[in-house]
């Protein structure tokens, strides 16, 4: 368990990492990355039970899959800050010959990544597969996944949702970054998602909502409640209401920063709002 203050400090540093990574290469996805910083920091440093070091097989530990791979800056920062690989390697994000590809991959052997993601809609199926293997192995640890809300427009998600409920995959917690925005605008304008809670409930899932998905205590409480729902025959989904671009005033309340890097001036302003806490890479 980690106290909220140290998690908040880590979040601030992760925000700086995200901003500096995308600024350096003038590409990448800061909006969704910032929106999920509190969640992923808390997941990796408070919620999940993790072994030291990295083993692809993830036996006897919790396993996480990032399905919306475009928010790679935040997962890279969180993994590096948790010690999976040197923090300095964040300097290589999106550069030639880097292990930190634009979208996460196992191809370059980056510790902490177990599946490639980027082409959307595939991570729930993968997570279910690993959850099934954990059951076969008698491994009582949990599998987690994170999905974009726009990603739920992919049909494979609903194939997976139907399977998980129909086959009692109850050692699995899916989470949705419910910021209601995607590249082309509001999800309601692009392709309305309708009621996600009603949809997942109809599919046979336990549905929980974290109303402030950028609040560490709310994330802790919500995920504890989600964990308590596991092992009861149903998969669990957590709808995480987040703010895209959280922590940088001009990146919030807009979808404009989905896939756009700040310029020098914007970076300076964004970093000023997030003073260094644990040391920049």
């Amino acid at each position: 368990m980690s106290d909220n203050k140290s998690l908040e400090n880590l979040v601030t540093q992760v925000r700086r990492d995200i901003l500096r990574m995308v600024h350096k290469v003038n590409s990448g996805h800061p909006g969704g990355s910032l929106g999920c910083a509190e969640f992923l920091v808390t997941l990796y440093n408070d919620i999940m039970k993790l072994n030291d070091g990295f083993a692809m097989d993830g036996k006897e530990e919790d396993v996480f899959f990032l399905s919306n791979g475009h928010i790679s800056p935040v997962i890279y920062s969180v993994l590096a800050r948790r010690g999976y690989f040197p923090v300095d390697e964040l300097n290589t994000f999106r550069l030639l010959d880097s292990r930190l590809q634009g979208h996460p991959t196992t191809h370059e052997g980056l510790p902490g990544i177990r599946i490639a993601s980027g082409s959307l809609g595939q991570g729930m199926s993968v997570a279910i597969g690993t959850a099934l293997t954990k059951k076969l192995n008698g491994d009582n640890h949990l599998v987690y996944s994170l999905h974009g809300d726009g990603e739920l427009q992919e049909g494979q998600i609903w194939e997976a949702a139907m399977y998980a409920a129909g086959n009692n995959v109850d050692n699995y917690i899916a989470t949705v970054d419910y910021n209601k925005k995607q590249i082309d605008g509001a999800t309601d304008d692009v392709l309305p998602l309708g009621s996600l809670s009603a949809k997942f409930e109809a599919f046979g899932w336990e549905v929980l909502e974290i109303e402030d998905g950028n609040n560490i205590q709310a994330i802790k409480d919500g995920m504890a409640a989600a964990k308590a729902k596991t092992g009861n025959g149903k998969p669990v989904v957590v709808l995480l209401h987040t703010e895209m671009g959280n922590g940088v005033d001009f990146m919030m309340n807009t979808h404009a920063w989905h896939g756009k890097a700040p310029n020098d001036e914007q970076l300076e302003s964004a970093l000023a709002q997030n003073p260094e806490t644990l040391g920049d890479y």
Partner: peptide, 25 residues
Amino acid sequence: ERFFQIGIAEANMIGIAAGMTIGGK
């Protein structure tokens, strides 16, 4: 216990298979 009927959902089947390798299957 080692047979998984996925239903008519081939994309999900491939994804589940990929995930099942993690842990040694």
